[in-house]
Computed example of a mutant assay.
Amino acid sequence: MDYEDMESFIEQLERRRRKPTFDQLHDRQTYFVRKNLIREIDKLSQKYNRGFKTAFINHAIAKLLREEFGIDV
């Protein structure tokens, strides 16, 4: 491996290290959610990949904060 390859290898490692982990970006919270809403989200999630529920809920909350409260997140 020459110097240029080693340098790019180290740059890739540093980029990975700087990328925040899932746990650094998210906190676990517990809420009561109506059963009919859970049922519909569960049905939708069967059509999509892992992580759909988290993405869906985060999108819905962000949209509501933006549109109803004027909070840009």
Rank of each mutant, 00 (worst) to 15 (best):
residue 16 R to L: 08
residue 33 V to H: 09
residue 26 H to V: 04
residue 33 V to A: 11
residue 17 R to W: 01
residue 11 E to Q: 12
residue 55 A to R: 12
residue 33 V to Y: 08
residue 25 L to E: 14
residue 9 F to P: 01
residue 3 Y to P: 00
residue 60 A to Q: 05
residue 10 I to W: 06
residue 21 T to K: 09
residue 63 K to Q: 14
residue 49 N to Y: 02
residue 41 I to N: 08
residue 54 T to K: 01
residue 24 Q to Y: 03
residue 65 L to T: 03
residue 61 I to K: 02
residue 36 N to P: 10
residue 67 E to G: 01
residue 18 R to T: 02
residue 17 R to M: 07
residue 49 N to F: 00
residue 69 F to I: 03
residue 14 E to F: 03
residue 26 H to S: 03
residue 53 K to E: 12
residue 16 R to M: 07
residue 69 F to W: 08
residue 8 S to F: 01
residue 53 K to H: 02
residue 1 M to L: 08
residue 25 L to W: 09
residue 33 V to D: 09
residue 65 L to K: 06
residue 23 D to R: 06
residue 54 T to D: 09
residue 10 I to T: 04
residue 31 Y to A: 12
residue 46 Q to S: 05
residue 36 N to Q: 14
residue 42 D to R: 04
residue 27 D to S: 11
residue 51 G to E: 09
residue 5 D to N: 15
residue 44 L to Y: 12
residue 40 E to G: 01
residue 71 I to R: 04
residue 23 D to E: 12
residue 30 T to C: 08
residue 21 T to S: 09
residue 30 T to S: 14
residue 9 F to S: 09
residue 56 F to K: 07
residue 47 K to L: 07
residue 12 Q to H: 06
residue 70 G to H: 10
residue 29 Q to V: 15
residue 1 M to F: 10
residue 60 A to V: 03
residue 20 P to Y: 01
residue 20 P to G: 03
residue 65 L to A: 12
residue 11 E to R: 14
residue 17 R to F: 00
residue 60 A to M: 06
residue 2 D to Q: 08
residue 2 D to N: 15
residue 8 S to W: 00
residue 11 E to C: 03
residue 69 F to N: 07
residue 69 F to E: 12
residue 54 T to G: 02
residue 41 I to G: 05
residue 38 I to F: 06
residue 6 M to V: 12
residue 54 T to N: 08
residue 21 T to H: 01
residue 38 I to W: 13
residue 6 M to L: 14
residue 38 I to C: 14
residue 38 I to H: 10
residue 29 Q to K: 15
residue 55 A to Q: 12
residue 31 Y to T: 13
residue 60 A to K: 04
residue 26 H to D: 07
residue 38 I to R: 15
residue 42 D to Y: 02
residue 3 Y to V: 10
residue 62 A to S: 09
residue 73 V to Q: 06
residue 61 I to P: 04
residue 59 H to Y: 10
residue 53 K to C: 04
residue 36 N to Y: 14
residue 42 D to W: 04
residue 30 T to W: 06
residue 60 A to Y: 09
residue 65 L to M: 13
residue 37 L to A: 10
residue 18 R to Y: 00
residue 41 I to Y: 09
residue 20 P to H: 04
residue 10 I to E: 11
residue 50 R to D: 01
residue 71 I to D: 09
residue 69 F to S: 00
residue 13 L to Q: 14
residue 64 L to A: 11
residue 2 D to W: 07
residue 52 F to L: 01
residue 18 R to K: 13
residue 36 N to W: 13
residue 22 F to H: 14
residue 3 Y to M: 07
residue 3 Y to W: 05
residue 2 D to F: 06
residue 32 F to H: 13
residue 61 I to E: 11
residue 44 L to Q: 15
residue 73 V to D: 12
residue 3 Y to D: 12
residue 38 I to N: 15
residue 40 E to N: 06
residue 60 A to F: 03
residue 5 D to R: 14
residue 6 M to E: 13
residue 5 D to Y: 07
residue 38 I to E: 15
residue 35 K to R: 14
residue 11 E to K: 12
residue 70 G to P: 11
residue 27 D to W: 07
residue 62 A to W: 05
residue 43 K to Y: 06
residue 13 L to K: 13
residue 32 F to T: 15
residue 32 F to Y: 14
